[in-house]
């Protein structure tokens, strides 16, 4: 019974909450979908409650405005001022991933970003936006992305263009795997150490078991703040790379 709870992988299992089938697709509302909706509701509630439009902001309003400025500055520094047209998209992406990661830190909550398909869909949204906007704005000029200036032509054809194409194709993979792997590994590790502390006590009894549980318990304690940091950093990295890629769509000739 306890041992089933100790399986570090079972926390990633998906359960149907509401059955829903459209055609041959199973679109059931699952615990994963629930956490996505919870994240959206939390974000909206937070921003509604904290944007009071006061001239002198209170604490909650300051946090909302700081987040706003934080994302705006991130876009400005990596994609330029014209990148601000993507501000709502980047902000939504950043705050959605951040909330999904942070909500996953609550015990017994499902972490939506620990599933590769979720992070991959988000990454494909970004790359899709980059390609569509890049082609719409620059036409064939978007291909300059693979044709950097200031390099000898032989070198370009033989070396640079294949490298650029491979790096462009690997972008959605690296973007999604980075976020997924961080969240997945972090949660496995947390569960492992916490579970180890518990199984020490159940296997060896309270007296020697509690002594043996000190080390894994301390590890859990140390890993928890680290995981909060990772939750923030990964959301930040995802948003920052989104800005960098969007900058390519805005200014394809490096």
């Amino acid at each position: 019974m306890i041992a089933a709870g100790l399986d570090p992988i079972s926390q990633f299992e998906i359960h149907k909450l509401i059955e829903l089938k459209i055609g041959k697709f199973d679109l059931s509302f699952t615990n994963s979908s629930l956490m996505m909706v919870v994240a959206v509701v939390c974000i909206c509630a937070w921003l509604v409650l904290s944007s009071k439009r006061a001239l002198i902001p209170g604490r909650a309003q300051s946090i909302a405005e700081l987040s706003y400025e934080f994302v705006a500055n991130m876009i400005r520094s990596s994609a330029g001022t014209d990148g601000l047209r993507f501000f709502p998209f980047v902000f939504s992406l950043f705050i959605f991933i951040l909330f999904a990661n942070l909500l996953g830190m609550i015990p017994f909550f499902f972490t939506t970003t620990s599933h590769i398909i979720v992070t991959f869909t988000l990454a494909m949204l970004v790359i899709g936006l980059v390609v569509l906007y890049g082609v719409w704005k620059n036409g064939f000029g978007f291909l300059k992305l693979f044709w950097p200036s200031g390099v000898p032509i032989i070198l370009k054809v033989v070396l640079i263009v294949p490298i650029e194409i491979i790096s462009f194709i690997s972008r959605p993979i690296s973007l999604s795997v980075r976020l997924w792997a961080n969240m997945f590994a972090g949660h496995v590790l947390l569960k492992l150490f916490a579970g180890f502390a518990i199984s020490m006590v159940t296997a060896l009894g309270f007296f020697p078991g509690a002594l043996g549980a000190i080390v894994p318990y301390a590890m859990t304690l140390a890993l928890t703040p680290l995981e909060f940091l990772v939750a923030f950093v990964q959301a930040y990295v995802f948003a920052l790379l989104t800005c960098v890629y969007l900058s390519d769509a805005l200014h394809p000739g490096h």
Binding site: V37, A39, V40, C44, F96, H115, T121
Partner: peptide, 26 residues
Amino acid sequence: PPFDPTYFPSQIFWLLVSFFALYFIL
């Protein structure tokens, strides 16, 4: 579980729904 394709359509669907709802509201 993280690679189980059974729930891929459901996850993609609900992710797009919730993300675009968020995008629209924000």
